[in-house]
Design a protein around this nucleic acid. Structure first.
Length: 845
DNA sequence: GCAAGGTC
């Protein structure tokens, strides 16, 4: 039996299909791992897909725990370090034996500053990360007569293959092993690869492993340093890494530019004019920006009371807009980010669309459809989606389809395109939004350009030159299916030279130049790609990490004080980690290892020595760094000023309930606290930061998936008070022979709004209410449970609801599925569950 | 408890 090992399940299936004599391999399982069995030229074959890397590099366990004797060692392979490591950099002195060790009476284990110079030189072991896959792989290897490594044709693929081979060798030391190199899933390519097998390129795999080791060493050492320099409890990891830190530095650098920006004053003269009965249009002085106030005043004086604008010229120009290139991962992430889906979310949604057979493989660099892709067949497939049917029909009536081509052409996977017809009713809204984007993009790449008719009209207004411009989509072309990012038409009336328009108004506006904009997540992804930071598969999750670490906040990306403090500190003491150069130098080193002109040990040792040199400066300044981090964290937590004592009011976490509240930094001298509303809390600046009614801080609240609002933090403030509303009678009291009224009430202590019976102490009847929106009684009772129905009016409009969380009607609705309001809440909760489960199992593993 | 890289 021939065993074929691929990088992922998808590839295992495709290769089996392409190699099998019958074209129909048999899907089977070994333990829980899917495999594909087939015959090829009379030989039994089986393909198994790994799950990317199956081994995880890590430090030896004895370096991780504080309850064991420590060890310190030398090279990654447990070999003596080369003698040319500069003296004073290589610490501790070389030792060839792995044994428990206390160095100079210092315990060097665990997360502490003193252990870091040793951690720099600690050996690295590779531990199984995918135990189930490894078990299945070994099971098959025992029975195999030959093995072919068919992982992806790149550096990480070679490493993944080499790791797999190590596992295979443990159970089948003598089985012949070869390597298949292919870069497209076509019959010709795969046949060629398997008819021309080569050897595994161990140098290339070593290059990949060097990358793993260097990333781990630098990441772990700097992360442990930053985290322990000022330990703020578990869950407050302060990380650093070869990719994440330069990415954070980009955002910080842009923020510094913004802070250093000096706005310049300028003036604009603009107004409105109309022609006959037609819609008025905007006119502005041909001097778009007056930098001199006197000049602006003078020009404005000429036109202030003007009644007429005489057309002096009409210029028409039509522009064509070419249809977009096919999507690869980066361009999809950027386009989806512009539609409000973060890159990380895009990848999660894309993965599930891919698993549902609705889109092609989502991790690609390629932007050119391969000739093997039957474009017409794809169009036919998605023509079943009613929204696309007319466009598809038009495309299918063409004798031949030609697609746009992007700049990046690789052959591993096709660009992202729809592979199935989706039903919007069966997808969660965001998944449909993404599918719709992908499907429309695909159709757009097959269509003609759009033509935009541009008109520029110049006017004379009392001797001053003015202009108006209009843009109209004259021939929509691909824009008929792909409206993303399309500007709205500015229609001008039909005007000719000499026509006279009526000036409706004319203003002199004082303006200021704006600082450079913050990076949106989409722009940041593109910037990372430009600078060689991360890969298509990692960029989205790296940005996510920066948010999790609280280095970044908001969208567009804004660095926190903590994020800026981390970059400042690393810029001073470990500048190598803050720039993209570390990545480009690593690339050069890996090329050398792959070419055999350098070795993994040399490259990794050199990198360790560089880091060791930086640790001196860092450790010397631990105290400074500790203070800088503490100050930054306090500044980030600040949401206002204490009205009683004037010290900072910050977000604190209750030790008892783990919930957060606002508390004065002056505690225990000052006991001011406030409850916090649900959502993300931000400080306001300037006058808006203090409530004029009660003196407490005003804050901005961003609730989950709802509109942000500003409020006074004090629930007892007159601005937060709400009159009680009688919403109905209490049935429980009526049954008990009492009279109870149900009152909607907002607590001045907690700020929470709820319905409670006037006899609450006796009958215990209470219902929760939505915390936001205007509340009204209806006088009606819920047909399912008898609770009083209420109306809550939010920005989304009025919404009638039963407040009873246990109402049988709720379950009915939940079962029926869709619906707005609380229905979405239920959906969100159920959608969350699998993710939570995943996290739990991951923890276990 | 750490990184970045694969993939589910």
């Amino acid at each position: 039996m021939k065993l074929i090992v691929t990088e992922k399940n998808d590839a295992a299936g495709q290769i089996a299909r392409l190699l099998s004599d019958s074209g129909k391999p048999k899907a089977d399982k070994v333990y829980d791992t899917p495999v594909y069995r087939f015959r090829r030229g009379g030989e039994d074959c089986v393909t198994i897909g790994l799950r990317g890397h199956i081994l995880q590099p890590d430090f030896p366990p004895e370096l991780k725990f504080n309850d064991e004797e420590g060890w310190f060692g030398v090279t990654a392979e447990g070999e003596v370090l080369p003698a040319d490591v500069p003296d004073g950099l290589a610490r501790p002195p070389y030792d060839t034996k792995r044994k428990p060790y206390l160095k100079d009476g210092i315990d060097i284990k665990g997360w502490k500053i003193a252990s870091l110079p040793y951690l720099v030189w600690a050996p690295i072991e590779k531990t199984p990360a995918e135990k189930g896959i490894i078990r299945s792989l070994k099971n098959l290897a025992k029975k195999a007569d030959s093995v072919v490594i068919g992982t992806d044709f790149d550096r990480e693929g070679e490493l993944i293959g080499s790791d797999a081979l190590r596992q295979i060798r443990e159970v089948a030391p003598d089985v012949p092993v070869s390597r298949a190199r292919y870069s497209a899933f076509t019959k010709a390519e795969i046949d060629h690869a398997f008819n021309n097998l080569v050897e595994l390129d161990q140098d290339l795999a070593d290059a990949g492993e060097s990358r793993q080791y260097i990333d781990l060493i630098w990441g772990a050492v700097l992360t442990r340093y930053l985290t322990t320099a000022r330990f703020s409890g578990f869950g407050n990891t302060r990380s650093a890494g070869r990719v994440q830190t330069p990415t954070l530095a980009l955002v910080v650098e842009r923020e510094r530019e913004r802070m250093a920006f000096k706005p310049e004053d300028y003036w604009v003269i603009s107004g409105e004019a109309s022609h006959g009965e037609e819609e008025p249009f905007k006119v502005s002085h041909t001097t778009a920006r007056f930098w001199d106030k006197d000049a602006a005043d003078a020009a404005y004086a000429n036109v202030a009371g003007a009644k007429e604008a005489r057309v002096t010229a009409v210029e028409r120009k039509s522009r064509t807009q070419r249809p977009p290139a096919p999507f690869n991962t980066t361009s999809l992430q950027a386009a989806a980010a512009a539609e409000g889906i973060s890159p990380a979310r895009t990848m999660r949604l894309a993965e599930s669309l891919y698993m549902d057979g609705l889109i092609s493989y989502p991790r690609v660099d390629n932007t050119v459809y391969p000739s093997s892709l039957d474009l017409k067949d794809c169009v036919r497939t998605i023509s079943k989606v009613p929204q696309y049917a007319p466009t598809c029909k038009a495309l299918l009536s063409q004798p031949k389809l030609t697609a746009t081509r992007g700049k990046q052409e690789t052959t591993d996977h096709p660009p992202i395109y729809p592979t199935g017809a989706a039903d919007p009713e069966k997808l969660q809204p965001a998944a449909w939004k993404l599918y719709n984007l992908i499907a429309r993009r695909f159709l757009a790449t097959l269509m003609g350009p759009a033509t935009i008719e541009g008109t520029k009209v110049t006017f004379d207004v009392n001797g001053e030159p003015f202009q108006a411009s209009g843009n109209v989509l004259a021939n929509p072309g691909f824009r008929s299916i792909y409206p993303y990012g399309l500007k709205k038409d500015d229609q001008l009336p039909e005007l000719h030279e000499g026509d006279v328009c009526d000036v409706q108004k004319m203003d002199l506006l004082a303006k200021q130049t704006e600082p450079p904009a913050r990076y949106s997540q989409g722009k940041l992804i593109q910037e990372m790609e430009k600078r060689g930071l991360g890969t298509k598969s990692t960029r989205a999750s790296i940005i996510d990490t920066l948010y999790q670490r609280k280095y970044l906040k908001n969208d567009p990306c804004e660095p926190s004080q903590l994020g800026m403090a981390i970059i400042d500190a690393l810029n001073t003491y470990a500048p190598r980690i803050t720039t993209p150069e570390m990545t480009s130098e690593l690339e050069d080193d890996m090329t050398k290892v792959a070419e055999g002109t350098d070795t993994q040990t040399q490259v990794v040792t050199h990198s360790r020595a560089l880091l060791a040199g930086m640790m001196d400066g860092l450790i010397e300044h631990t105290e400074d760094l500790s203070e800088a981090i503490a100050d930054a964290v306090t500044a980030d937590a600040k949401i206002g000023v204490c009205p009683k004592c004037g010290r900072d009011l910050v977000v604190k976490t209750s030790a008892k309930t783990r919930g957060s509240f606002a508390g004065c930094m002056g505690w225990p001298d000052c006991d001011v606290t406030y409850p916090l509303p649900q959502g993300r809390i931000e400080a306001l600046e300037g006058e808006a930061a203090v409530c004029p009614d009660c003196g407490a801080p005003r804050i901005k609240v961003q609730p989950f998936r709802q509109k942000a609002y500003e409020t006074c933090i004090n629930p007892a403030c007159p601005t937060n008070r709400e009159p009680d509303v009688e919403v109905g009678v209490c049935h429980a009291c009526a049954e008990a022979g009492r009279t109870g009224k149900l009152i909607a009430h907002k607590s001045e202590r907690t700020g929470k709004r709820f319905i409670r019976c006037t006899n609450y102490d006796d009958c215990g009847t209470s219902y929760p209410l939505p915390q936001r929106g205007k509340l009204e009684a209806t006088g009606e009772e819920c047909p399912d449970c008898g609770a009083p129905m209420v109306i809550v009016t939010t920005a989304r409009g009025p919404w009638k609801l039963c407040p009873n969380m246990d109402c049988p009607g709720r379950e009915k609705k939940a079962a029926a599925g869709r619906g707005r309001g609380r229905g979405t809440g239920t959906k969100a909760a159920s959608a969350k569950k699998p993710a939570a489960k995943k996290a739990a199992t991951k923890k276990k593993a």
